[in-house]
C-alpha cells in the first residue's frame, strides 16, 4: 500500500512540474491522464469485479454534456455540474446494472453495447435535451481564483487531479473489504455468497462508483473539447478504447490501466503520421498480442514475474 502511495506521489510530483518543462505537449498529456482515469475507473468494474463493460463512453458523454449544457444554458459552473453528472451517472448505472447483471459473461458485454447505443441515439435525436446532432458549445467558463479554465495548463491540472483521485480510490479499495468483495465475486459467485457477499449488490456498487468516476473525467473532457458532438463522445469506439486501455495495461491491477493509457496514447502519437485516423489499428494489434501472449496485460504479467522471482529467491534461501 505504501509502495503504491509513493508511486502516486511520484506521479503527482512529475505531473506538477510537467507543464513547466513541456509547455507545448499538454494536449497529449491531458489525453493520457483522462484515459488513465477512465480506464482505471472502468477497471473497478471490468478488472476488479470481472464485468466487462463496452458502454463506458455513455458516462464520459454524460459528464461532458452535463458540463456543457449546465454552462451554456444555465450558467452553472463545471464543478457543480460534474458533481451532478457523477450522481446522475451512479443512478443510471444502478438501473442499467439492475437490468443487465442477471446476464453473465459475453451477454453482459453485449447488453452494455445495446444500452450505450440507445443512449447515443437519444443524445442525437432529443434536441431539446442535448442540442441534437450538431452538439453543444461552451463559450464561457467561470474563472475561479482568476484561473482561465480554457487554458491547457489549467486543464492539465484538472486531468492530473482526476487521474490521481481515481488511482488513489483504487489503491484504498484494493486493500479494503470492498476490494475483496469485488474480487470474490469476480472469481466465483457461489463461493462469494458462501462468504455472505451479495454478488448483485457488489456489482451494482462497483458499476455505480465506476460510472460516477468516469463521468467526472467526462466533465473535464467537456471543458477540454469545449464543443461536444454526440457521435464523437458517445461512440462505441470510445467505449472500446477505454476497455482495451485497461485490458492491455493489465486488468485488476492498480497501475495497469494507467500504464495502458501511457503506452496506447504514446504509441498512437508515434504512429500518428503513419496511421493518421487509423490509429485504432494499434489497439487492435495490441489486444491480439495481449490475448495471445500476455493474458494478464502488461502490468499483470510484470507483477506475476515479480512474485515468481520472490518465490524462487525464498525457496533458495
Amino acid at each position: 500500500m505504501t509502495k503504491h502511495l509513493i508511486g502516486l506521489g511520484v506521479l503527482l510530483a512529475v505531473g506538477m512540474t510537467y507543464p513547466a518543462i513541456f509547455p507545448n505537449n499538454l494536449t497529449i498529456a491531458i489525453s493520457v491522464l483522462l484515459f488513465a482515469g477512465w480506464a482505471t475507473s472502468w477497471d473497478l468494474l471490468g478488472g476488479w469485479n470481472g464485468q466487462v463493460s463496452l458502454g463506458h463512453a455513455s458516462f464520459v458523454g454524460l459528464g461532458a454534456y452535463f458540463v456543457a449544457i449546465g454552462q451554456s444554458q444555465f450558467g452553472l459552473a463545471p464543478w457543480w455540474t460534474m458533481a451532478m453528472a457523477a450522481a446522475f451517472a451512479a443512478i443510471l448505472a444502478y438501473f442499467w446494472g439492475w437490468l443487465t447483471f442477471s446476464l453473465r459473461g459475453p451477454y453482459f458485454s453485449l447488453s452494455t453495447i445495446a444500452v450505450a447505443e440507445i443512449l447515443r441515439l437519444v443524445a442525437i435525436n432529443e434536441e431539446w435535451l442535448s442540442g441534437g446532432a450538431t452538439g453543444v458549445f461552451i463559450a464561457t467558463l467561470p474563472e475561479p481564483f482568476g484561473i482561465d479554465l480554457f487554458s491547457r495548463t489549467a486543464q492539465f491540472y484538472m486531468a492530473l487531479a482526476f487521474a490521481a483521485v481515481v488511482i488513489a480510490t483504487v489503491i484504498v479499495i484494493s486493500r479494503a473489504r470492498f476490494g475483496y468483495q469485488l474480487r470474490a465475486v469476480r472469481e466465483d459467485e457461489d463461493s462469494a455468497m458462501a462468504a455472505g457477499i451479495d454478488p448483485t449488490a457488489t456489482k451494482l456498487k462497483a458499476f455505480m462508483l465506476s460510472a460516477a468516476l468516469t463521468s467526472i473525467g467526462g466533465g473535464i473532457y467537456g471543458v477540454v473539447l469545449a464543443f461536444i458532438e454526440p457521435h464523437v463522445i458517445f461512440a462505441l469506439l470510445l467505449s472500446v478504447q477505454i476497455a482495451l486501455t485497461a485490458i492491455i495495461g493489465g486488468r485488476g491491477t492498480i497501475w495497469g490501466p494507467a500504464v495502458g493509457a501511457l503506452v496506447l496514447i504514446g504509441a498512437g502519437e508515434m504512429f500518428r503520421t503513419t496511421f493518421a485516423e487509423a490509429n485504432m489499428l494499434i489497439y487492435g494489434i495490441l489486444i491480439l498480442v495481449v490475448v495471445l501472449f500476455v493474458p494478464r496485460g502488461i502490468v499483470g504479467e510484470l507483477a506475476r514475474r515479480h512474485i515468481r522471482r520472490l518465490y524462487a529467491k525464498r525457496a533458495q534461501g
Binding site: R177, Y180, Q181, R183, A184, E187, D188, D190, S191, A192, A195, G196, I197
Partner: peptide, 17 residues
C-alpha cells in the same frame, strides 16, 4: 473453490470481512 488468484490469508480474509 479457493479464490486462486489470492493468497491463503486473503481467501479467509474475504470471509472474515
Amino acid at each position: 473453490r479457493p479464490f486462486e488468484e489470492l493468497t491463503v490469508l486473503e481467501n479467509v480474509l474475504i470471509a472474515a470481512f
